[in-house]
Design a binder for these strands. Sequence first.
DNA 1: AATAAAGTTTCATACAATGAAACATCCTTG
DNA 2: CAAGGATGTTTCATTGTATGAAACTTTATT
Lengths: 257, 257
Amino acid sequence: MHDIAAREHSTMRSLERALHLLTIMENVGWPMTVTEIGRDSQLSKATALRLLSVLEKYGLAEKRQGRYRLGIAVLPLAHSYVLRNELGQTALPVMQELAQASGETVSLFVRLGFQRVSIQRVEGDHPLQHTSPSIGQRLPLHLGLGKVLAAAMPEEELQKMLTPLDEVYFANGTRWTRKAFLADLNRIRRQGYCISRNERVMGATSLAAPIVDRDGATIAGIGIVSSTERMTPKKLERFSIEIRGAAKVIAGRYCGD
Amino acid sequence: MHDIAAREHSTMRSLERALHLLTIMENVGWPMTVTEIGRDSQLSKATALRLLSVLEKYGLAEKRQGRYRLGIAVLPLAHSYVLRNELGQTALPVMQELAQASGETVSLFVRLGFQRVSIQRVEGDHPLQHTSPSIGQRLPLHLGLGKVLAAAMPEEELQKMLTPLDEVYFANGTRWTRKAFLADLNRIRRQGYCISRNERVMGATSLAAPIVDRDGATIAGIGIVSSTERMTPKKLERFSIEIRGAAKVIAGRYCGD
DNA sequence: AATAAAGTTTCATACAATGAAACATCCTTG
DNA sequence: CAAGGATGTTTCATTGTATGAAACTTTATT
């Protein structure tokens, strides 16, 4: 991520370092000792401890049995975000309609660095267990629905994202290649929507369309997730139209007023 | 909350201030200008701006049309918290069983300062719209299920919480009084569970029991929420036993190994 | 019990963080 | 449309916060 420890002479160093600790705890996922955190963050034990103490004071970190983990205070932040998010609230009725009509799960997501994060989700009637992204989960841009956001990235950033990627495999076992990926992005840009079959999740097929603001910038993506078996060519055709329609409607309402 | 701006000579000042800004944005709920944030936090515009810039860089704040709000990065933090939370994961099957058997919504919550936050929730079959706490929402300790956590607070902290409280009303319109509240806490301590009828939400009746660790400390509460109409004396009796049982089972599994 | 490892506290020093003020930009209103 | 006011952003010298090393304490391991 960001190399905080490396760069001296930064600004707001303690803040940056603390935020870095949060992402470390988020990504590692298991409770960490001060020493571990110090190691991972390249900070001295003393500094790590002090930062963690403040985070703990605010409920963003929790210490139990000498180990630190994320604290409850992250939940109200997320709750407030979802509740107050204009895009999510605007999209919700449209998503509900689409989920109703299609019976499939509909998901709204935005880019965060080189990943995507789902900010809203509406379940369809059809069962589809744990394959669809839950709210807040970090998911890749180079697989599945993420491609629709990758297609809108500036060339330079895209390169920076792709450079470290190596030995990536689809869920169905076939090898992911840069060439095919870039070709796919071009198709997405041309057709205005993205398809993925067993890419991130085996047995799942999904479509997504970009939500584009007045300036032509892609601010989010909306996707519909189904099982591969259920996805007939006819349905694919229908969904590809509906998902683009939904994206347009949301963009209109969101940017309109 | 914390009076950061007031106290000079603090430690990790910039970090504390930044975290304070996060809670301000969380609580205010609408997009704020730098000047507003500076005013609310008692910081100079310059400082507020710098702090916000760093928060924005990490995705914890977002700037749009010159206004700041919480950023998407809070979602992955919450996602990771919920996913990795041992208590929540331990409690889940027990909660599912209880929700199944009772048909009511079951909720698991912990204390955060002078509020409670739900960390896990399982819906029952019976419809109960928006009255039950959604995950991450900040809710009071002096009304409804929160009492079960208040009952376990040290006397001193309890006083600190109650002091500023004035002119509080229940959802049914009757006046909340300190005396009745403290009496209620005693009853809760004696009986090991809490009841509330139309306290926080009109038409809702709920029961809760404390989840107590080996040292006798209350680490969380588990509650069952129903409609007041549906809650017959017989059900009340039954739930009061079941909720305490569930709390015991969770405590055993959580602290056991 | 001895030893090692990790957690916590202390302290002098450097440089990050700060607010005031200057400057730029946006919005409002006559 | 111009003038005025408010807000956003940048600059800069000063101060005291944040820092890591090392001392010290506690907890785990052999």
